[in-house]
């Protein structure tokens, strides 16, 4: 049976150096539950290491946690990769790590704790997660899609780290699954401004608890999975994108 799912496909956890430490698995899940979010995309910068804890924390709730990552391409374009399978996300992570130079400076950028579902720190990730990979945009999109993931160009309405800001326009043959607009631009405005070549989604890009769900996308799906969202983006089998909801 198909029904409406409210999705926030782009949130960070405490692993992202720029996110608040309050972005713990339980804190995130509790907040998402209060805001009636059905699907969460966990998209830390260049890492998926907090996805397992997020999935554990989500178990008692009816919230689907998608394994994701916000990859920074060589051109400094942010691209979301969203997967059903944790292994697929970790496979991407392995390649991203191999192409991500530098070490994190906690004083300059913030700490990068890998946590369990209780929010207890297991270790600190020492890579420069805030940095850019040496993978070009086409490679990033191809790495995501070849593993069955959705490749979504992040916050295209922003100047910084967006495909439009960095590269002025979307390369003709780039097989993106969708474009994402930030909470600063409503989804309808984004559709008018950036055209209908790609489906449009809207997400919070939350770095703090109170930002979760400030912008979201509603889908008409059978279940909260990447496979279902992929169908919705291409309007297959009755699945569809309904609208972007601001909270």
């Amino acid at each position: 049976m198909l029904r409406a799912f409210r999705a926030d496909l782009h949130i960070h956890t405490c692993l992202s150096p720029c996110a608040e430490l309050e972005m713990s698995p339980r804190g995130i899940i509790r907040t998402a539950s209060e805001k009636e979010i059905d699907i969460l995309g966990i998209c830390d910068h260049n890492s998926a290491e907090n996805v397992p804890a997020m999935r554990h924390a989500a178990r008692p709730f009816r919230i689907s946690v998608l394994a994701g990552m916000e990859v920074t391409s060589q051109e400094e374009v942010h691209v979301l990769g969203l997967f059903d399978s944790l292994d697929s996300a970790l496979g991407l992570q392995e390649i991203v790590y191999a192409h991500l130079p530098g070490e994190n400076d906690e004083d300059a950028f913030g700490v990068q704790p890998v946590v369990n579902e209780e929010g207890e720190i297991l270790r600190f990730n020492e890579k420069l997660l805030i940095g850019a990979t040496t993978l070009d945009l086409e490679e990033v999109v191809s790495l995501i899609r070849s593993r069955g993931g959705l490749a979504i160009a992040a916050h295209i309405d922003r100047e910084g780290f967006s495909i439009i800001g960095q590269l002025a326009f979307i390369p003709a043959a780039l097989p993106l699954d969708a474009l994402e607009t930030s909470p600063a631009m409503p989804i309808e405005t984004a559709r008018q401004k950036f055209g209908s070549r790609f489906p449009m989604t809207s997400a919070s890009d939350a770095h703090r608890l109170d930002e979760i769900g400030r912008s979201s996308t509603s889908f008409w799906l059978a279940e909260g999975t990447v496979a279902e969202i992929r169908k919705a983006l291409v309007r297959q089998d009755g699945r569809k994108v309904m609208n972007g909801k601001e909270s």
Binding site: Q74, E75, D136, L137, Q166, L167, A168, F169, P171
Partner: peptide, 10 residues
């Protein structure tokens, strides 16, 4: 230092 092919179009 951008080498992406979009530089040509720009």
């Amino acid at each position: 230092l951008q080498t992406h092919q979009n530089i040509v179009a720009v």
